Simulated assay, not measured.
Amino acid sequence: MNKTIKYLLSFLFFIQISCQKKKEHQKTKAMTKYEWLDATSAPLGYPVDVYRGGLESSDGEFTSLYSGTTAGSWGEANRGMNNGEKSIPNHLHVIWVSYAEKIFYEADTDIDYEKMIALFRNGYYTPSDGDDPNPRKENYNQIIVGFAPGGVVVVWLSGGGRQVEIGRYEGKKITIPKSEIDALSPGPQKNMFDPGYQSKIMHEFGIVPEEVAKANEGKPIPYGLWDSYRTEYNWTLVTELPNDLKNKDVGIYAYNGNREELFGETLVQKYPKIIPDNVKWNTPQKRTIPGKVDFSWVDENRYYSEIEFDKNEIFSAFKEVSSAEPNAEIELKVTVNIPKTSASVQLISGKKQVWLKNSKIMVRKTKYKD
């Protein structure tokens, strides 16, 4: 056997082994299972129903998202029926009806498997409550699929104290054949096509609150709104407390559905080697605009502050302070008054500052101290 033949045989053997290892690796990845619950979400006032379909995994596993009318708030988990140890999905194929639009949409798309599997595998740290101040390791346990007007689809991964967007996808308008509709048995699926039922859902106050229905009446659907929630800015929360006190933990709840419970200054100082930078309250990073923030601190008592922002005001403020430099560092500064009864809020970037005067601010002393 000459050298050329030996080389070719060796090369072919190497290729065969490499392909086999790749297949085994892919098979192992496909077989990796985690405990999670499916859920759906829709913006307040814009309920949807999944007609059929759901989340698909590369090993053939399927999780249906058909579970009844989805209402509530954007990013908020609603429904969910299939809890258990399951493969992580890599594809979404679903048909749903948007009752506000009286339109059916279909999304048939790959979703970010690699991002999800990494998050499931690594978990995250979150502050502990009560008597145990040590950082607590948590796992993600929910995959939420949100449906907004215009065919917008967003997937989040969620766990206690944390929710992160996986990706934004888009459905297309479709028409279900009349023959298929006629063949449906009387019940929830067939009701989705009934104009009277569609109208009833929009005026069912258990699904769309009366004040929301009245506020939306006669107004056009704000297409693009939910995409605007996804705009990121380089901002950090700053808390100025009386007597040079330091915050203990911080919560950030964004309009786009993301949620973070972060370690405050006292915990970061106490556990500097344990707490990762991405869950420290003052680590600079790009984030979407918050709808609410909260934080606590301790002196002789424990105090808790919560700030709920006016949506129009805070979006306008972020736009204003970043108008000259989109990547500018921005501080969302909360200053608590000396009596510890209220606070003021402003957005600061360089010499620019905008007061957020319409924020709802609450500061209170709690009944316990850590």
Rank of each mutant, 00 (worst) to 15 (best):
I307D: 01
Q353M: 12
D310K: 05
V298M: 14
N258S: 15
Y253N: 11
P326M: 10
R302I: 07
A324E: 15
V298Y: 12
V336R: 03
Y303T: 03
F309H: 03
Y304D: 10
V268R: 03
P272H: 06
S322R: 02
Q353R: 11
K360R: 14
G257I: 00
L267G: 02
Y253E: 12
D249V: 04
W226A: 05
I274G: 09
N247S: 08
I314Y: 00
K286C: 07
R302D: 12
T341L: 11
Q269T: 10
E265I: 05
N358Y: 14
T239K: 04
K273I: 02
T283H: 05
R259K: 10
G224I: 07
R287K: 15
Y253P: 00
R287W: 03
T335A: 12
T335R: 06
E313M: 04
D244G: 08
K292L: 15
K311Y: 08
S323Q: 13
K360E: 15
V334P: 02
S296R: 13
I274C: 03
I252Y: 03
K333C: 06
V268P: 01
Q353E: 14
Q353I: 04
V336L: 06
E232M: 15
S296L: 07
K292A: 13
K280H: 07
E325G: 04
E265A: 13
K333D: 02
F295S: 05
N247C: 04
K292S: 15
S349C: 12
L237H: 03
N358A: 11
R230H: 13
S322Y: 04
P339S: 09
L347Q: 03
V334N: 01
L225N: 09
G350N: 09
T288Q: 07
E240A: 09
E261L: 09
F295E: 03
S323W: 07
I289W: 00
I274F: 05
N312Q: 10
W235Q: 02
V293Y: 01
Y304H: 13
K270F: 01
W297C: 07
A324Q: 14
T231L: 13
E325L: 14
F315T: 01
G264W: 00
L237I: 14
E320Q: 15
K352I: 07
P326S: 11
G224N: 10
I338F: 10
L241K: 00
I307R: 01
E232K: 15
A317Q: 02
R259Q: 10
S316R: 12
G251F: 04
Q353W: 06
N301Q: 14
K357I: 11
D299N: 15
T283I: 05
K351M: 12
E240W: 02
K352F: 08
Y255D: 01
D244E: 13
E261W: 12
T239V: 14
S228P: 08
